[in-house]
């Protein structure tokens, strides 16, 4: 294709990109409009100025700072703990090649594909019996195991390729197994572990079903749960709804920008999930 043809292709792809990004733009535009401006101008006009009261009101009303903190605590704990468990498992399966490792790996993979609905009620019941219901600890434990199941699967394959000579040399020097893990395997696999850590963090941040079931009170809820549950509340008028959507979108985009390089490099890693 020459001349106008090639511009037509570019034009079509740009139009599609605009459609994809449009919801973000319109949410941002309307989150900074006053309710009065919204009712006279509608959603499509550019805002007259920056009216931040809607965002501030929504923030205070739902105590959004607490929700952010809750999401952060849960995601950070899960990502660290799940990486630790994944490393321990992958050390045994990938490097130690323990007996029955294939069936253990299949078990972990099945666990990762199981719908959470098939675990939800017993987990809810057990957490109540253990006094963990409506605590973040319950979500942290469950999500850690689910993420580690995937991490084990991935990391075992990576550590299966680990150069054995290095470990043998260390063993001759008298390094124990734990020492080899901490001093050799972990530092050398650090790039992969970083990718896992970031993925676990974002996946846990985005998680909806289990936090919805476990976290019912205002001071334990995560960002996605709080925003979803508040939808349709009486105080949510048009501008406040867009303010709430914007507050949900901003952290996600921030993570995307911060972790962009790791994510685009690692997205093929995530593809196995």
């Amino acid at each position: 294709m020459r001349g106008p043809g090639r511009w037509a292709v570019l034009f079509a792809l740009v139009v599609l990109a605009v459609v994809m990004v449009f919801p973000f733009a319109i949410v941002a535009m309307n989150a900074v409009k006053s309710p009065a401006e919204y009712s006279t101008q509608g959603p499509l006009s550019l805002p007259d100025g920056l009216y931040l009261q809607g965002i501030i009101d929504f923030w205070n009303r739902v105590d959004f700072g607490t929700k952010l903190w809750n999401s952060f605590v849960i995601s950070a704990s899960v990502s660290v703990l799940a990486v630790v468990l994944s490393v321990l498992n992958a050390y045994a399966l990938g490097i130690g090649r323990v007996k029955g490792r294939l069936s253990i790996l299949v078990l972990f993979l099945v666990a990762n594909t199981l719908p959470q609905e098939a675990l939800a009620y017993p987990l809810y019941y057990l957490s109540k019996a253990a006094g963990l219901y409506d605590t973040q600890l319950a979500v942290i434990i469950v999500m850690t195991v689910i993420q580690a199941a995937f991490g084990t699967y991935l990391l075992s394959a990576v550590l299966g390729q680990f150069p054995k000579e290095i470990l043998e040399a260390a063993a001759i020097d008298g390094a124990g197994r734990l020492r080899s893990l901490l001093r050799i395997v972990v530092p050398i696999s650090r790039p992969t572990l970083n990718v896992l850590l970031i993925f676990f963090f974002i996946w846990t941040w985005n998680e909806f079903f289990l936090p919805l079931i476990f976290l019912i009170s205002n001071d334990t809820q995560t960002v996605p749960v709080a925003l979803a549950v508040l939808q349709g509340e009486k105080f949510m008028d048009a501008t406040m709804s867009s303010a709430s959507a914007l507050l949900g979108v901003v952290p996600a985009i921030a993570f995307f920008l911060i972790f962009q390089r790791t994510l685009t490099r690692g997205v093929t890693v995530g593809a196995i999930k």
Partner: peptide, 24 residues
């Protein structure tokens, strides 16, 4: 001796995945 490293996960796995799934 490597299987020692699997113990924490297997216990958690039992409590969080296997038992709840069978209960379900």
């Amino acid at each position: 001796g490597y299987w020692l490293y699997l113990i924490p996960s297997l216990l958690l796995f039992l409590g969080v995945i296997v038992v709840p799934f069978l209960m379900n």
